[in-house]
């Protein structure tokens, strides 16, 4: 199978006996990310009381969920070996449509939510189509569609504003068994991934990301894979936009750009390879938690909030270096 070219994220055994070092090297970036998250939570917990409570988990997850949704779509695209910059435009456009079209009537909210989701999927599919049919680079195509979507959002709503119904704003505070709705969404994302990555489409996306040529020779339609991959990314970006409006209560034509590169960073910190075929959504979600908690950490350490970007940049570099070292070590072992 094509996947065998690069070791699959799970289930790769080195030799006849299960080799724990090989196992750890395969997952080194993910394990490093978990370690970093533990350290951050540990430091945070020692400076602040009440960190190890459900309330804190609910709060942090609701803060991280927009990035998590955006990064889920980005992860799928990265596994395919592409990149999607247009999610920034889609997020802006989604919040702007929601904030200008939602009324107190739940039926309108439902209609426009479905409209935003469908629009996201359609625009993503269009990205995939342009990339395959015109044989263009994902970076440039999605840069162009980012610009178009962002411009459209600015035409609809030139400055931050609009409003959503009060009950829509309460979404993040809904709880079931003590866990807030964002935490349930997080569990749903993991469940989705657990199912999706071994579906036909999930396997095909990873195989195509590993080696496009051999995937094509095995009968994979590259156009179909691209349309579905970028379509999913657009869908998740639209979901992120809707979720974001439950947090901010308003539309913003410029907010989306804050999620483009962080979504890539979250995935990379979690061990998703930019070269395609390698990675796991669990890693991305850990990465998104790390990027969100750095803000909390800077706050409780009482240092200038300006250190936050510095810290996230350093963490990004460290995790990338860790994964490239691990890759070298793994290659040395298999050679």
């Amino acid at each position: 199978m094509v996947l065998a070219e690069k070791a699959p994220p799970h289930g790769g055994t080195h030799g006849s006996t299960r080799d724990w070092r090989g196992w750890a090297l395969d997952r080194a970036p993910f394990l490093v990310a978990c370690l970093m998250l533990l350290v951050i939570v540990g430091v945070y917990g020692s400076y602040q009381t009440g960190v190890f409570t459900l309330d804190e988990l609910n709060l942090d997850t609701s803060a991280a969920m927009t990035l998590m949704l955006a990064a889920t779509g980005q992860t799928i695209v990265l596994l395919r070996g592409g990149i999607d910059l247009s999610i920034g435009g889609m997020i802006s456009l989604g919040t702007v449509i929601a904030a200008t079209r939602f009324t107190d009537d739940p039926a309108t909210v439902l209609f426009w939510s479905l409209f935003v989701l469908a629009l996201g999927a359609a625009i993503g599919a269009l990205n995939g189509l342009l990339i395959s049919v015109l044989k263009l680079q994902p970076f440039l195509v999605t840069l162009a569609t980012w610009s178009i979507l962002n411009g459209t959002a600015m035409i609809i709503l030139p400055t931050d504003g609009g409003s959503v119904p009060g009950w829509w704003l309460g979404f993040g505070y809904l709880t079931l068994f003590g866990l807030s709705s964002p935490v349930w969404m997080l569990l749903a994302l993991l469940l989705f991934w657990w199912w999706f990555r071994w579906t036909r489409l999930g396997i095909t996306i990873q195989a195509t990301g590993s080696n496009e040529k051999s995937a094509f020779l095995s009968g994979v339609s590259i156009t179909r894979v691209n349309v579905l991959t970028y379509g999913l990314s657009g869908l998740f970006a639209a979901g992120a936009a809707l979720y974001l409006t439950t947090q901010t209560g308003a539309g913003s034509p410029t907010i989306g750009k804050d999620y483009i590169l962080p979504s890539v960073a979250a995935a990379v910190i979690g061990g998703v390879s930019l070269f395609g075929g390698r990675g796991h959504l669990a890693g991305t979600l850990v990465g998104a938690f790390i990027l969100t908690l750095i803000g909390n950490l800077v706050f409780v350490l009482k240092i200038s909030s300006y250190w936050q970007p510095v810290a996230s940049g350093v963490i990004l570099l460290l995790s990338v270096l860790a994964s490239s070292l691990a890759e070298k070590a793994a290659r040395g072992r298999s050679a």
């Binding site: 195509v141 840069l143 162009a144 569609t145 610009s147 962002n150 411009g151």
Partner: peptide, 16 residues
Amino acid sequence: SGALLVVYGAVILITV
């Protein structure tokens, strides 16, 4: 300025 971004995007798509 929103329209400018739309035009920028279209120009990039066309040229590439």
